[in-house]
Design a protein around this nucleic acid. Structure first.
Length: 642
RNA sequence: GCCAAUGUAGCUCAGGGGUAGAGCACUUCCUUGGUAAGGAAGAGGCCAUGGGUUCAAUUCCCAUCAUUGGCUCCA
């Protein structure tokens, strides 16, 4: 049979050869590092015989699919360990996830598991891994499979079997452990050299809260100890950068039980940062033809009935505000778009007025479930960097290009260099669930695709992920630790212009309906700043830092000079503060370092005499002395380059 | 919302049925110093809130509130 490799080369192999034997024929080194194979675009066990002509890609640790296979096999290893320690344990599902694996287990009445039990299970896993058992795949009939799990008394697996057809059922066995499993798996447990169980949590069987709660054990594993250590160090670093922790330490924001859960309160330094960020975006938007507007935080119920939000946000949200007048109800706004539609409708529009772009840093209120709240990234009041663009169908593409350009400018300014976008299109099998004409949808989808191609944006396309009212583009951003965040979004909307009966007079003197684009490059300021804090670890770029320079007098004899320096800096628009405390210089430096102030100016006898400052850069160290004017010039230069 | 854990000084945490503890931060005093923590003293707590059990509750029980981790990843 002929095997085609990714580089296009074709080689002849004996029928029934496995991927691992093919790997060996290429090189022994390769055979050692390969974990799984992609046969005709499907991930396979390395040991599974290939029976006919096929394309073959050998997967190593670097491939996402190989990692998933490795972790899935690790989940089986954990299950084997659990059966050894807890006889009679019942198993739910045990998949690989983005960063490791888990297994849902039911220990039975009266038995429970806590974090303290994890090392024991881990030790057992290591012991079993040393045995180097092979993962053996076996086709089983449905009847045999049912008989096996009945005997074992595992009702979860029996339930899973109900959904499977005879002839497509496989078991995998390693050592003394057999599991219902589609596979694939790595060849043997011996390859799992390093593992760590991270967490236990409750999880409902099949994610259904009316069903039994199982114990979920999370873990992660690697082919060698160094990778595990690196991963654990990364988790440590992520913990250190947690925006909730840094937010408190750097005095950026707070929460108060009295004010309410999920309602962030911006402290002076956080407000400073946030204002700089908004001003930056506001300026970029004005450059691109946006018109800033301000609308109230509440609106009459009828507004949201018109927009359709009342039906969507009605019950599980903040309840209406009543007034002394009977039957009068206001809602806290969950979105800005209805208000903006009213702005559009205020004065009759001509096609010459389009595109009409209104922008608002609009604070909205949504009653997130209490369990969903999380720092700044999941809150009940947040400010969208919202704008709505009303345009003609033909202007869609240019408007997308305009927004993409804006988004790119912003992300690059904030040194998010690694981002992709998801294009969400209609479900081709379900064309009826969308509002708006098919030809308009075609145009809009094409506009998005072409615009993203023209700017060279990396995208993935998701069919069926579009909203009922229009296709959309979501930005996925990778931060400095390689974690993905969904931030900005651009959405086409055929629904609201319809509901608000928005119109413009065309060149033909007829009435037409505009298309609306919702877009928010940051998503929300809260979420974005949360991500920015973790991305930078609290070391903000100079232009954003609430305090740019800390002036540290050696002793209070030099306080007057320190004040002079501060005056100079402030007059040039730099943000500087003097540390007046009667402390040694080492202490002042340490405190400024931990507050992550970008520059420290140490001033003492020498500096005062020479009218200089001794410059120290945060996390870098002493840069030597220079004249204040020179220092300010280099600051300006740094700001320009950011 | 559901499940679990947690809630003690501004922060990080120890403690435990009988008058509440440490380190850091804070205040005062001493020290006037040269690139990541100088010394001493002091002040600071309704032990989250509300009920219950008990002679006695911060400690045990229940509820509430808040925080944290899960609850979406499908053998």
């Amino acid at each position: 049979m002929n095997i085609t490799f990714p580089d296009g080369s074709v080689r002849e192999y004996e029928k029934g050869s496995s991927a691992i034997s093919i790997a060996k024929s290429i090189s022994n080194g390769l055979a050692k590092t390969v974990l799984a194979a992609k046969v005709n675009e499907e991930v396979w066990d390395l040991t599974r015989p290939i029976e006919e002509d096929a394309s073959l890609q050998l997967l190593t640790w670097e491939d996402e699919d190989a990692k998933k296979t490795f972790w899935h096999s690790s989940a089986h290893l954990m299950a084997e360990a659990l059966e050894a320690i807890y006889p009679g344990v019942k198993l739910g599902i045990g998949p690989a996830i983005d960063n490791g694996f888990y297994y849902d287990i039911d220990l039975g009445e009266g038995r429970s598991l806590s974090l303290e039990d994890l090392p024991k299970i881990e030790a057992q896993m290591k012991k079993l891994a040393k045995n180097g058992s092979k993962y053996i795949r076996k086709d089983v009939s449905k009847a045999d499979a049912i008989a096996y799990f009945k005997e074992k008394g595992d009702e979860y697996k029996l339930e899973l079997l109900e959904g499977l057809n005879d002839g497509e059922i496989t078991f995998y066995t390693q050592g003394n452990f057999t599991d219902l499993c589609r596979g694939p798996h790595i060849p043997g447990t011996g390859q799992i050299k390093a593992m760590k169980l991270l967490n236990v949590a409750g999880a409902y069987w099949r994610g259904d809260e009316s069903r039994k709660q199982m114990t979920r054990i999370y873990g992660v594993s690697f082919p060698n100890q160094e990778e595990l250590d690196h991963h654990l160090a990364m988790l440590e670093e992520a913990k250190k950068r947690d925006h909730r922790k840094l937010g408190a330490e750097l005095e950026l924001f707070m929460f108060s039980e009295k004010v309410g859960a999920g309602l962030p309160i911006w402290l002076p330094k956080g407000t400073d940062l946030r204002e700089r960020l908004s001003n930056f975006l506001r300026n970029e938007q004005v450059k691109r033809g946006y018109l800033p507007v301000i609308t109230p935080h509440i609106g009459k119920k009828e507004l949201y009935v018109t927009s359709g939000h009342y039906a969507k946000y009605g019950e599980d949200s903040f309840q209406p505000i009543h007034t002394p007048k009977e039957d009068e109800e206001f809602l806290l706004k969950p979105m800005n778009c209805p208000h903006h539609c009213e702005i559009y409708a205020n004065v009759p529009k001509s096609y010459r007025d389009l595109p009409y772009r209104v922008a608002e840093f609009g604070t909205v209120y949504r009653y997130e479930q209490s369990g969903e709240l999380h720092g700044l990234t999941r809150v009940r009041s947040f400010t969208q960097d919202d704008a709505h663009i009303f345009c003609t169908q033909d202007q869609l593409k240019d408007e997308f290009l305009n927004v993409l350009d804006l988004t790119k400018t912003i992300l690059e300014k904030l040194s998010f260099s690694n981002y992709t976008a998801q294009i969400s299109l209609r479900d081709p099998d379900n064309p009826d669930k969308y509002i708006g004409s098919a030809s308009n949808w075609d145009k809009a989808e094409r506009a998005i695709i072409e615009a993203t191609q023209e700017v060279g944006l990396k995208t993935v396309t998701a069919y069926g992920e579009a909203a009922f009212y229009g296709p959309k583009l979501d930005f996925m951003i990778k931060d400095a630790l390689g974690r993905s965040w969904q931030l900005g979004t651009i959405q086409v909307d055929y629904n609201l212009p319809e509901r608000f009966e928005l119109e413009y007079i065309g060149a033909d003197n007829e009435k037409h309906r505009p298309v609306m684009i919702h877009r928010a490059p940051f998503g929300s300021l809260e979420r974005f700043i949360g991500v920015l804090i973790e991305h930078t670890g609290g070391k903000f770029p100079l232009w954003l830092a609430p305090e740019q320079v800390a002036i540290l007098p050696i002793s209070d004899k030099f306080v007057a000079y320190a004040d002079e320096v501060r005056q100079d800096l402030m007059r040039k628009g730099f943000r500087a503060r003097v540390d007046y405390r009667v402390e040694k210089i080492g202490r002042k430096i340490r405190d400024a370092e931990t507050s992550k102030i970008p520059y420290m100016l140490i001033v003492g006898e020498k500096e005062m005499e020479n009218k200089e400052v001794a410059v120290r850069k945060q996390a870098v160290g002493d840069l030597g002395s220079q004249a204040i004017s020179d220092f300010m010039q280099s600051l300006s230069k740094e700001l320009e380059s950011e």
